[in-house]
Write a protein that binds this DNA or RNA. Structure first.
Length: 490
RNA sequence: CGGGAGGUAGUUCAGCCCGGUAGAAUACGUGGUUUGGGACCACGGGGUCGCAGGUUCGAAUCCUGUCCUCCCGACCA
């Protein structure tokens, strides 16, 4: 038992850390708040990237790349934006090192930058400063650009994948000729995120719009997808912002419209990050390790041989390689693990820890009966299947696992959306059940903030398809026209 | 950034209070026996005790500083 995992019941946070570290997704680094993403974790991110990138391109977007550094003065141009990010910016002040008298390396005080550079926490400012030169007329619009990059936010408290000082993400930045078109884009990309979360990550999400106080710094409206983790806490999994003309005005991005009149362009930005990896882990995994949805699993099928002496060893190997080829030819990723330094039981546990969706075990008795043992990671169910047609069987099984994982997570989410009609009930639900709570709110930031202070619960969003119904605010008793979605969140 | 805990072999940890030749388990290497849920025997390699100062004849151990991690809070994707 070299790799024991803390159970969820015992310590949920420790369980999460164990999975990330022992599952080989990431490691701590020598740099505060920054993690090393290990090959297994990175390939998971690459799977997500590939799917998302295709979806972006299918909706007309192209990729580009903007600088890591942003001149400090750019930040001052959009007031709300700078206020939101000022407290967590890394700043470059010098451009050279030198040897001190005692031989140690120091920052050369003579190499001070004329203007400090900010390591991007997000790229709106540098991008809008660039767009200014790219837009002259309505014929230049829309600009539909995305970039994959890293950003830095000097967070006080970090957690692997969920909140690191440096993280990988994509940020889309689009410019449009009308507000309507920009709003449509904002919603379209929210839809892309929701589809990706549900169809690829098997993670059901609530689509909604943020309240004023939870809004992105500089946005007119922030749309989001919110997912529910197994400990009843919510995770903001993606955001899409309608920026109005805020950045166009700040960076003076004007265009001639069809009526030959000068107007500011309308903007959106939207992003998802490596946080999704953390979300995936917390949404699906169990006390035996990771459970990865087949569509984003770096490895979908593993074949493990079970030998009895040297008897049938060659036959088993030959059959296993044949199966691997067959499975691979149907487009699945598969590994035949014939390493001889661990025994089958060890391998079973190891691949469960890694969350590989399907495991095939092949031994002498299977060869005799022309069969193979198939174990699915999501339910742990074992079946013995005829060896003929195993590739087709596994192909269908992966689809079934993907669907089952979504259904399970969806059922959990549905069970954890609870209406609360009184303050007592609200507090009790938060403490005893967790999850999303639908409650009336009087619409003021003051009440929202008071509720947060009292319970640590925030308004995750106002769901997009929210039914209108008169009621009374859960805290103040003032009139309310709809329920909003509360939860404690990551 | 406040409160608490921690950093010693790849990993998990003991040793520290009370200074005196750096330990265990596991992992790793070799040979052998094994293999249907984390095998066993034998032998072997591996650590400037997070880093930097200080006290001392002598520091993993005492003192100061610093970096990193975890947990709980305030801030956030």
């Amino acid at each position: 038992m070299s790799k024991e995992i803390t159970s969820r019941a015992e310590d949920y946070s420790q369980w999460y850390n164990d999975l990330i570290l022992k599952g080989g997704l990431a490691d701590y680094s020598a740099v505060r708040g920054c993690m090393v993403i290990k090959p297994y974790g990175f390939s998971l991110w690459e799977k997500m990237q590939a799917a998302l990138d295709k979806m972006f391109k299918d909706t007309g977007h192209v990729n580009a790349y903007f600088p890591l550094f942003i001149p400090k003065s750019f930040f001052g141009k959009e007031a709300a934006h700078v206020e939101g990010f000022a407290k967590e910016c890394a700043v470059v002040t010098h451009y050279r090192l030198k040897n001190d008298e005692d031989g140690s390396i120091i920052v050369d005080p003579d190499a001070k930058l004329e203007e400090e550079l900010i390591v991007r926490p997000t790229s709106e400012t540098i991008i809008w400063n660039t767009y200014k030169d790219w837009v002259r007329s309505y014929r230049d619009l829309p600009l539909l650009i995305n970039q994959w990059c890293n950003v830095v936010r000097w967070e006080m408290r970090t957690r692997l994948f969920l909140r690191t000082a440096e993280f990988l993400w994509q940020e889309g930045h689009t410019a449009h000729a009308s507000a309507e078109e920009a709003i449509e884009e904002t919603k379209k990309m929210l839809g892309v995120y929701a589809t990706f979360a549900e169809e690829y990550m098997a993670m059901p999400v609530i689509r909604g719009v943020k309240t004023e106080s939870e809004r992105f710094a500089g946005a007119v409206d922030t749309y989001c997808i919110e997912a529910l983790m197994q400990d009843g806490k919510a995770l903001q999994a993606g955001t899409s912002h309608f920026l109005g003309q805020n950045f166009a005005k700040a960076f003076d991005v004007k265009f001639l419209n069809k009526e030959n009149k000068l107007d500011y362009v309308w903007a959106t930005s939207w992003g998802v990050s490596t946080r999704l990896v953390g979300g995936m882990v917390m949404a699906h995994s169990d006390d035996n390790g990771l459970v990865i949805p087949p569509k984003i699993a770096p490895l979908q099928v593993v074949i493990i041989p079970v030998y009895k002496g040297d008897e049938k060893k060659e036959e088993i190997n030959t059959k296993a390689r044949e199966m691997a080829e067959e499975i691979k030819s149907l487009g699945m990723s598969v590994k035949f693990d014939d390493s001889d330094n661990t025994r089958p039981g060890w391998k079973f546990a190891e691949y469960e820890l890694k969350g590989v969706p399907v495991r095939l075990a092949l031994g002498a008795r299977d060869i005799e009966k022309d069969q193979v043992e198939v174990t699915r990671r999501d339910t742990g169910e074992k079946k013995t299947i005829g060896a003929g047609g195993i590739a087709q069987y596994v192909d269908r099984l992966l689809i079934d696992i993907q669907q089952n994982m979504f259904n399970k997570a969806n059922a959990y989410q549905q069970e954890h959306i609870t209406p609360a009609n009184s303050w007592d009930e609200f507090e009790k639900l938060l403490d005893e059940k967790g999850g999303f709570i639908l409650a009336h709110w009087d619409g003021t930031p003051e009440t929202e903030s008071l509720i947060k202070e009292k319970t640590k619960a925030t308004i995750r969003c106002i769901p997009l398809d929210n039914p209108q119904a008169d009621g009374k605010c859960i805290l103040t008793g003032k009139p309310s026209r709809q329920r909003v979605l509360f939860a404690r969140a990551y």
